[in-house]
Amino acid sequence: MSEKVTYNTVLFEDSITNSSVLSNDASAISDDIQQFLDIVDDRILGYYDSNITNQLSNYTTTFNNDSDNMQQFGRWLNDTYDDYKMTSSKVNEIVSDLKTNELDGSLDNVGHKAVEDPTHTENTPDNVQQAAVAEKNSNSNTNSKDSSERDRESLLRHWRERNKLDQISDSQNADGLKVQAASITSNGSANGSKAGIYASLVGAGLSQAIEGVDAILDDKKDEKSQASEEVSEEKKMQSGPGTTQEEEKEKKNDNMLLGMGVGLAAAAFTGKFVLSDDEEDKEEEKAIEKYMAKEEKK
């Protein structure tokens, strides 16, 4: 496991300030030497070591050069720091977008290979990657539980609206929904009728979707808290699809998708599918209709 490195912005800002101080220090040393040479009796230095006078005189030039060099150093550090801040800001935007897209459950993104974390691309400086990781760690742990719960509630609300499952109230949590789903499944199976069968599929699909969503949200919690300790694992993910964590992630995403698809198809046959009037839902309705049309053709 590689050594953990933290990008210390305080140290870096201090370095920029200290460069200016170093420039002044070098200039002060040069002045001190010159002042000494101006007042000291040349007979002494000439007798003691004829080189001393020359060396001291040379040092006035040397430290004047060092003073200029430190000024340039400070300017270079400042430019480098500005580049870092700009890059870090961009990376944070990308990370933020990734979080949003993943939790959104967009059909275009779910089930695909996990989007390569731009904080770990080859082209991103190591320090920026580490900064992004550090920021993910510092920000996500505090908010992960709340955002997970919100995300879960949001997804499950979509389900309720789509499937018009009236017996499920808004106040019910996911466990309650699972119980309802299990009940629908068993009742539908026991009924034996076509409607009953499809009802059971709805219940099963809903249950599966809930489990899939829960699993994904749980994974995200674990992922965030372990991200800083599993740098090598994340590097494994960088190398492309086929790693263990990615496969599991895909499987869980597929579970959710499958559950949604089965449930939606079953809901359509049982006539329990209700479309909402909201523009956003209309978009979803179109997608669902297409999906149902495909299923009917099979």
Partner: peptide, 18 residues
């Protein structure tokens, strides 16, 4: 002495950025 401390701090800052 003061300059050495500052140089040390700068070295730390640079090292912290790998």
């Amino acid at each position: 002495q003061k300059s050495d401390e500052k140089i040390h701090t700068i070295d730390e800052g640079l090292a912290a950025t790998n």
